[in-house]
């Protein structure tokens, strides 16, 4: 199991389109993947689950992956946050 923390740096935070991209990417991996924010832990493969976190810019979330492709999953999901979900230049 791998866990990595990442800061939300896109202006709109984990809003609908960003959450859709995140869940879409998470669904391409076999591993179980979770996003943790404060006390809440949601399935990263669930769009509505991610939206319930209501996580905004400046917040830190943790990505947890557990499975055979966990390393790649965390790396790619972290990358999605770092490139601001391709929303901003």
């Amino acid at each position: 199991m791998i866990e990595e923390k990442v800061e939300i740096i896109n202006k709109l935070g984990l809003h609908a389109r960003a959450a859709a991209k995140l869940s879409h990417l998470a669904n391409t991996f076999d591993s179980d993947i979770f996003i943790v924010f404060n006390e809440d832990k949601v399935n990263a493969k669930s769009l509505l689950g991610i939206l319930t976190l209501a996580a905004s810019v400046g917040n830190y979330i943790s990505i947890i992956a557990d499975g055979k492709d966990e390393k790649r999953a965390v790396k790619e999901i972290k990358g999605l946050f770092e490139k601001k979900f391709d929303e901003e230049s």
Binding site: A16, S23, S46, L47, L48, L51
Partner: peptide
């Protein structure tokens, strides 16, 4: 909207 997104997922 949440219901529809659930369906599409």
């Amino acid at each position: 909207l949440p219901g529809l997104l659930k369906f599409l997922t």
